[in-house]
């Protein structure tokens, strides 16, 4: 394989995959612990109507308005879910089901009614993502990687994702205590004078931001996998929240690199020159990692539990 091909095609894609997985995976820890894992699911599904609405309002397929549309749709969906849950006194799963399917239907109607479908906003891309289209042009060998000219040509998605990932890491570090206590015991958090509602709203907004930044590259369904699988895997392995966060980053990184590698180079193993969907493959690898953890984790895996049951 040529160095230039790797640098301009594979490296940016791998970096984008790892960064999306890391940013979503970090936040996923709190979603999983708060029993809000499926909020990520709902937010990912309303990306489609958001993008279409963004296109309709802005009239272009430029990235920024579409991303703003997706972000707005995510926040509207989260707000509606909360309103319907409280006003209708519904279980949150039912409220989510009502909201995200309805917004998805609106998205499809809008898509069909406009010429958005002709203008390259096809729904499949929103759902599957298009990791393979992230290109770093103008880099031909490893010596150039850190040159100013090459860095200025870094793919925009990569830069955005790096910023979002850094912001999320900083936010989680800065508000670690507050996130921890308001997740474990909102009652105590309130009696300590913490703004519990603001914290959970802010968490949802950051989740929406991470989802929007990530699914442009990797697709909305992969985003769900990244919110849930690394956190769930780490959850099987440790009882310490800080360690769980680190582990989820490790798992997300492995899934990102492994998934892309399998999708891009796997088929060549049986002599097929086509590559497979990287987004899908990353989700599959994340699922496999989680399965291994569920089965073989030291204390909480089913093997250990079965052995303890036999012993005790």
């Amino acid at each position: 394989m040529m160095a230039s091909e790797f640098l301009s095609i594979d490296l940016p894609a791998i970096l984008v995959a790892v960064l999306s997985a890391t940013s979503c995976g970090l936040l996923g820890n709190f979603l999983v612990l708060r029993r809000q894992a499926l909020i990520g699911d709902a937010i990912a599904h309303v990306a489609l109507p958001g993008i279409v609405a963004g296109f309709l309002i802005a009239g272009t397929i430029a990235t920024i308005p579409l991303m703003i549309g997706a972000m707005a749709a995510a926040i509207i969906a989260a707000g509606l879910i909360e309103i319907i849950r409280q006003a209708g006194r519904l279980e949150s799963g039912a409220a989510m089901g009502v909201v995200f399917t309805t917004m998805f239907a609106i998205g499809i109607v809008l898509l069909e009614q406009t010429d958005a479908s002709n203008a390259h906003i096809d729904a499949e891309h929103a759902l599957y993502g298009n990791l393979e289209s992230t290109l770093w042009l103008g880099v031909t060998n490893w010596n150039d990687v850190l040159s100013r000219e090459a860095l200025s040509k870094l793919p925009r998605q990569l830069v955005t994702l790096a910023g979002v990932t850094a912001a999320i890491a900083i936010l989680i570090t800065a508000f670690f205590k507050e996130l921890k206590v308001s997740t474990f015991d909102p009652g105590l958090a309130a009696s300590l004078g913490l703004p519990v509602k603001t914290i959970s709203t802010a968490l949802i907004v950051v989740v929406a931001l991470a989802a929007v930044a990530a699914f442009e590259a990797v697709g909305s369904i992969l985003v769900i996998a990244m919110f849930i699988c690394p956190a769930a895997t780490a959850r099987m392995l440790t009882d310490n929240l800080a360690r769980q966060l680190w582990l989820s980053v490790v798992v997300a990184t492995i899934a990102g690199i492994g998934g892309y590698g399998l999708a891009a180079f796997g088929p060549q193993l049986w002599g097929d020159s086509h590559s497979l969907s990287a987004g899908g493959m990353i989700a599959v690898v994340a699922g496999l990692l989680q399965t291994v953890a569920m089965v073989a984790a030291p204390r909480y895996g089913i093997f250990c539990r079965a052995r303890r049951r036999r012993a005790g």
Binding site: G280, I282, A286, G287
Partner: peptide, 11 residues
């Protein structure tokens, strides 16, 4: 539910 829906869909 989230694990299953995203991993199966990914596959």
């Amino acid at each position: 539910i989230g694990t299953v829906l995203s991993v199966f869909f990914g596959l």
